[in-house]
Design a protein around this nucleic acid. Structure first.
Length: 611
RNA sequence: GCCGACAUAGCUCAGCGGUAGAGCAGCUGUUUCGUAAACAGCAGGUCCUCGGUUCGAAUCCGAGUGUCGGCUCCA
């Protein structure tokens, strides 16, 4: 989720840290939530409470964020959950006291002196930086604004609610470490997160949503549904169980079909690669700390973190003609990334992963068309999940390779491809990779969370590093362009996302187990097995519950496993060679003949409806 | 990597200085049942690992490993 790189408008970034990864923030940084003043006010009240309980606390920043607020503190000791309760109680007292928020303005020097005197070095640093920024812009340093309520006064530009009594129902949520200004070389402060809403109902709804998200946690569902497991013997590397693998294969088959329709051919490339390749690609210089490197005889080798360099080698195995382009290569190879331990998180960040990786090697005049194809494939591949992707054009960053003309051209091509596909998009100014602009793709899940999914990257660097060339129509040689994208991203992360999106109730087409036959008594087991065989012959994933449980319990277990169809099978069905389907939605369907059922379910699977 | 928390049976958790408990799951037996839990019995644990304190450690302390919440990172 934190893959998006937020870039706050320059004059906002000091006092208000945007929530990283929030697409709303990325798409429209100016759109503030109407609850923000209240949330920010709650942060002030929390700071008041903390100062009260821990005199001498040094204050960091305390902005409003999506759904709430936080404040960073330098404290004499680590906070415990009990402290949160005490802080909440003090906050409640401050709210009950209904202190007015009062704005003050001080001349710059006086304002600075005020915070020096109060022993607030972080606030002083902010003021000093504001001064530097003002001078750089050739403006005079503006007055220092503070907000005071009751016993507490803080550097702040506002706005706030009129008084603390206007702060709605709130709850403190968690404590976490956070580097001052997000810089890992600076001190680590303690950040308290809280949430606040206009009404009790909204607060409760938010807390319910958090609970719901916890219930849907893919790490829990992955175990409950027997999809995968993690083991300390290979940290952050999933072990795929039969059911997880069934889901994977269904997704993979769909990805392959989409690639096939898009004119791709598939390759597979080695996992162990000598360092010379990574030197050529630039990974050795730029990505080595994330690679697993080892001695391989008298050479140094690395496990590949990405597929692209190897596709370059495949391209170079022949003299290529302009007629051979575009060459569209799909690659589902294993990738290995030695992520920093703290970054690991269930399926969302693993160290061994597989992408539905796509490399299009094309002529410069084919770029727009190929990006356009990528955009169409993205939409097509997300269709069966009901995801409606949103697109963002990430343009030149401050630190970049290449001339302005180059960026002008590359950004223009991506924009044109977006227009050509009839896609409305936002611009993430400065969000591009250092070597080229890109198009980032986002989807919203069933809980309203935004996820960054595919990224479509233009790459003029790799062809140059690998000296790729083709024979041009006009004679001579020219250098192709590479377009990279993975639509699911990694299978691991995508499965994590859809597990939570569907709360484990996967659509029929990709459900790990599509139907369970529920024999009513042991005498039905043989015929139930026959029924399963008929369905399996049509490629359906069917199991028979041959336990000694009663039918009711078999149904309950199948429901808990979120199996789309339960096929109740007793004397009547055995007699007539039918089955009585019950859906996981609780609908009981009339008995149907085996062949007809197989036909119907096979069609349903092929239709890949999002459900 | 950094800050903090957590680690007890397959799962969810209780026990928190005197050598370990429940529910569910599992196994066995009985039951063979018509749309979300049949009944009975049995079995199951170097209390993450290593070290320390103590007469005695699941319990206190330290280190390590893993996981979780964040920060950072994320071609």
């Amino acid at each position: 989720m934190a893959e998006a790189q937020g870039q706050a408008p320059p004059d906002e970034e000091v006092l208000v840290a945007p929530e990283r990864g929030s697409v709303e923030e990325l798409l429209d940084a100016s759109a503030g939530d109407p609850l923000d003043p209240m949330r920010h006010s709650a942060a002030h009240v929390m700071a008041e409470a903390v100062m009260d309980l821990f005199p001498g606390t040094k204050l960091g920043i305390g902005p409003a964020i999506a759904d709430g607020f936080y404040y960073d503190f330098e404290l004499p000791r680590a906070l415990t959950p009990d402290d949160l309760a005490a802080i909440e109680a003090r906050m409640a007292a401050s709210v009950a006291a209904d202190h007015a928020f009062v704005r003050h303005e001080l001349p710059p020097e006086e304002g600075r002196a005020f915070f020096v005197e109060r022993g607030q070095p972080y606030k002083v640093e902010i003021l000093d930086d504001l001064g530097v920024a003002a001078r750089a812009a050739g403006r005079p340093m503006p007055p220092v604004t503070t907000y005071e309520h009751g016993p507490f006064i803080d550097l702040c530009r506002g706005p706030h609610v009129a008084s603390t009594g206007r702060i709605g129902p709130f709850r403190l949520l968690s404590v976490a470490g956070a580097y001052w200004r997000g810089d890992e070389k600076r001190p680590m402060l303690q950040r308290i997160y809280g949430t606040v809403w206009a009404t009790q109902e909204e607060l409760e709804r938010y807390l319910w949503r958090r609970e719901e998200a916890k219930k849907r946690d893919h790490r829990k569902l992955g175990r409950d549904l027997d999809l995968f497991s993690f083991h300390a013997e290979s940290p952050a590397a999933p072990f795929w169980h039969p059911r997880g693998m069934a889901l994977w294969r269904a997704l993979e088959a769909w990805s392959r079909q989409v690639r096939l329709e898009g004119g791709f051919v598939e390759v597979r490339t080695p996992a162990v690669v000598r360092k010379e390749l990574w030197e050529t690609s630039g990974h050795w210089a730029l990505y080595r700390e994330n690679m697993f490197v080892f001695e391989d005889g008298d050479h140094l080798s690395g496990l590949k973190p990405m597929n692209c360099p190897e596709s370059m080698l495949i391209f170079r195995t022949q003299v290529r003609s302009y007629r051979d382009l575009p060459m569209r290569l799909a690659d589902y190879s294993w990738l290995f990334r030695n992520e920093r331990t703290g970054a690991l998180a269930g399926m969302f960040r693993v160290r061994q992963l597989t992408q539905d990786d796509s490399h299009v090697i094309c002529r410069d005049d084919q770029v727009i068309e190929e990006v356009n194809l990528a955009l169409r494939l993205v939409r097509r591949q997300y269709g069966p999940f009901g995801f409606e992707p949103r697109f963002k054009l990430a343009t030149r960053p401050e630190k970049k390779l290449g001339t302005d003309e180059f960026w002008e051209m590359a950004e223009g091509k991506l924009a044109e491809a977006l227009h050509g596909a009839g896609i409305a998009y936002a611009v993430d100014s400065g969000g591009g990779a250092f070597y080229a602009p890109k198009i980032d793709v986002f989807v919203e899940d069933a809980l309203g969370r935004e996820w960054q999914m595919a990224t479509i990257q233009l790459d003029y660097q790799l062809p140059q590093r690998f000296e790729l060339e083709y024979r041009a129509a006009a004679g001579g040689v020219e250098r192709p362009v590479v377009i990279h994208y993975a639509i699911y991203g990694s299978f691991e992360r995508f499965i994590g996302i859809i597990t939570e999106h569907y709360a484990g109730a996967f659509p029929f087409w990709c459900a790990p187990v599509q139907a369970v036959v529920v024999p009513i008594a042991d005498r039905h087991l043989d015929a139930a097995g026959e029924l399963a065989g008929v369905l399996r012959a049509r490629g359906l994933r069917v199991e028979v519950d041959n336990s000694s449980n009663r039918m009711q319990n078999k149904i309950r277990l199948a429901q808990e496993q979120k199996v789309p169809y339960m096929l109740v099978f007793g004397d009547r069905e055995a007699e007539a060679r039918t089955a009585s389907p019950r859906t996981r939605g609780g609908e009981q369907q009339p008995a149907v003949g085996w062949e007809e059922l197989a036909e119907r379910l096979a069609e349903e699977a092929a239709a890949r409806r999002p459900d």
